[in-house]
Write a protein that binds this DNA or RNA. Sequence first.
DNA 1: GCATCGTTAGAGTTAGACCA
DNA 2: TGGTCTAACTCTAACGATGC
Length: 443
Amino acid sequence: MQVLTYLEKYYPEQECSHERPDLETWKWKMMGALVGVEARLQESLKPKSRNYPHSWNRNEECLDHMSGITLVTSVLTWTWCSYSRRSHEWLHQEVAISSPNSSNQDSLAVSYLIHSCGLSPEAAISVSKKVQFKTLERPNSVLALLRNHGFTKTQVAQFVKVNPSFLLSDPEKTLLPKLQFFQSVGFSNRELARTLTSNPEILFRSLEKHIIPNYNILKSVLRSDEKIFAAMRRARWAFQTDFRTYFIPKIAFLREHGVPEPCIALLLTSHPQAMTRRYDQFSEAVIEVKEMGFDPSKSMFVLAIHALLNRGIWNRCYQAYGKWGWSKNDILLAFRKHPQCMNLSEKKISEVMDFLVNKMGWQSTAIARSSSGILFSLEKRTIPRCSVIKVLSLKGLIKKNLSLLTVLQAPEKSFLKNFVTKYEEEVPQLLGVYRGTVDVLEA
DNA sequence: GCATCGTTAGAGTTAGACCA
DNA sequence: TGGTCTAACTCTAACGATGC
């Protein structure tokens, strides 16, 4: 069925002309039509006879209305995506009827999420399953509030995508006081929008019980506003807890064990989830890290606490390195060199070790001494750089016992200067090897 | 229905100090 | 000057439970 045929037959009051309409007018006419279509469908779905409850399957009018919903929904989405670059001729095209299951509610939500919130059609369909609008009054008020507080179109879309139920909040009672608090402590509109877009769930917390006390504790430890902004942006989960219960006793415990304020601040801003663990787990980890030989005055100490608290991952990493011949001492050495090496997936460890040991010929246990090298991206960093080193080594241009970190740790510019540009006369294809366009054996 | 609470997992990059 | 190592920093992703 064609869209125009359907609308003219059942909804002539929408005045669907063949002229190109104004986008906004057309959008609302289509949405209005959609509301009417569902009512007609419901009516036509009623069984004509108690003896034949499925008789609607043979009801042509019913099928027309089901087609109508699909068609009008398609029109709405299509209008948004293509209106500006195509003519009105599409109205006469055949549109496939995919399924009779589309509902008026879903279509309205998808349309609203696309048009008013700026979501992509794919994101809107996904998000529409999590939120239902009875009216658009409240979502409109919420969006207006965000825009009045400096949220850009992209930030609004991001905000809604992560927390669609936010659109149903009471803007005056629930949201405005929180926004006003952040402004009162010095957040600019730009900083506020950026921070809340990264961590929208802050706005779901109680102003009196959570936001104000937590802010005050953060302020007392971090001191600078920039660090507070950064902490709030990155620690979306941790800031959903009550700092008075979770943070204060642990901060005191760290101070008792000689951890300086900058390191406590680092733990708060980098790995605040560590502070949300049970007090007994946390204190045990602190003592264990100390017994391993970490210096409490160094930042490595708090990174080790973070790694050790994820005991499940730590154990998996232990097993994974063990498969590559690492002894307990090797593993502890690697952990002391870079605690984050015990916070990786088995897949990551396996892939990196396989490449370095089997393809590059590094000794497995030697890698333990340069454990931070394991953390780099295999595709983006390790393979390109090691390929260059392999070529230079095969040609005898560099010594064969280079440290893994010499190869991987150097900044991009330094590596290119020392290992690519320096040898471009002897090996012109070296840049191609680095970029992956030339095979190691062809260079 | 809406507001709030509670909970982890994973991946990556770079600057700069120090030393031979 | 190059190699080695330490330290610091950045980023992404959801959902079930509970209370009012």
